[in-house]
């Protein structure tokens, strides 16, 4: 679900420099990725962010070398891609439909319709924003991240983990995502979405920039707000924010020992159920009975990163097949 948006945003932004080439390349890239198998795809993505990032930045429109045999057949379930192809706005309905499709693996009718409704309302204004700004702003931000020596990679991994856990936990609570976009970014206040927030209980809890409980890994992303925002950005950003919110919204302190969570602890997601605790307590539990306090399942001893990544893989398969 949200993971799609991330891939679509992160990979394209790495490469996009010129307007048209950038767009085309995004399409090509995502189409190609779609063809390969899922796990291959994920590793590819990770390594692309890491390795290819800088190189293709220089190439600029070099994305032509990516072959794109069946973009149009394939883009049914790639909503973000469509959004990037047609920023004109006449496809709003199609976009939002696909969007919610890939968004809710459970596809329960209620969550489906509501998310369609929500995204319809919240996204129609963005489609009018110019796509030309997208290339510039995105590549700029990626350059900045690349300078940070893989800092972005860590971030994305965290996000992927968070989203993976999130998938497992809340299958049918997907609808609040679209309103979340706007509540997170107060640059374009919208009365419509304000009412959406009111309807949806959990949306009201989005972080404000001054919020104490906001995870410390977020400022990295917020930095990019200094660049002009566009629809792509909104999309990806919202998905990230969304994933973060549900997994780690409550604790600024460890629920077990009540100590404050530091930076490492906040990005520590030991169990796919999303239950967070500090590293110290986690170690003590591992020595003791080794079960997650949240779901009482055994912790995976091979390391939390692998476990969540694997689970993320298996559940990102659901919406695609």
């Amino acid at each position: 679900m949200g993971y799609d948006s991330i891939t679509n945003v992160s990979i394209p932004t790495t490469a996009s420099n010129a307007k048209e080439f950038g767009k085309k390349k995004r399409v090509n890239r995502t189409a190609k990725l779609k063809q390969s198998k899922l796990d291959v795809r994920r590793e590819q993505w990770l390594s692309q962010v890491k390795n290819k990032g800088c190189k293709e930045e220089i190439n600029g429109g070099g994305g032509v070398k990516m072959h794109s045999p069946d973009v149009h057949e394939r883009n049914d379930d790639r909503p973000v891609m469509k959004l990037e192809i047609n920023p004109g706005g006449e496809e709003t309905e199609g976009i939002t439909n696909h969007y919610s499709d890939s968004d809710s693996p459970s596809n329960s009718p209620i969550s489906h319709t509501s998310s369609v409704f929500g995204s319809n309302r919240s996204h129609s204004p963005f489609t009018s924003s110019s796509s030309s700004s997208s290339g510039g702003c995105c590549s700029g931000s990626m350059i900045e991240e690349d300078d940070g020596d893989n800092g972005c990679l860590d971030d994305w991994e965290t996000i992927a983990d968070a989203l993976a856990a999130d998938d497992l936990k809340n299958d049918n609570l997907e609808s609040p995502e679209p309103p979340q976009l706007n509540s997170v970014i107060p640059l374009e206040p919208e009365p419509v979405n304000a009412t959406m927030l009111g309807q949806d209980g959990c949306c009201a809890r989005a972080w404000r920039p001054d919020d104490v409980s906001r995870p410390q890994s977020l400022p990295n992303l917020l930095k990019q707000n200094s660049f002009p925002m566009n629809s792509d950005r909104f999309y990806g950003f919202g998905a990230i924010e969304f994933g973060f919110k549900k997994v780690c919204s409550p604790p600024s302190t460890c629920p077990i020992c009540c100590e404050d969570l530091d930076l490492t602890d906040t990005s520590f997601l030991p169990c796919p159920c999303g239950y967070r605790l500090c590293l110290f307590c986690h170690k003590r539990i591992l020595e003791d009975d080794g079960r997650c306090p949240g779901c009482r399942k055994e912790y995976d001893h091979r390391g939390q990163g692998n476990a969540s990544l694997k689970l993320g893989r298996s559940c990102s398969m659901i919406p695609r097949h």
């Binding site: 629920p255 077990i256 239950y275 079960r291 306090p293 009482r296």
Partner: peptide
């Protein structure tokens, strides 16, 4: 059970 083996620190 939750006072014995099904206890969780949560």
């Amino acid at each position: 059970d939750i006072l014995k083996n099904a206890w969780s620190p949560a």
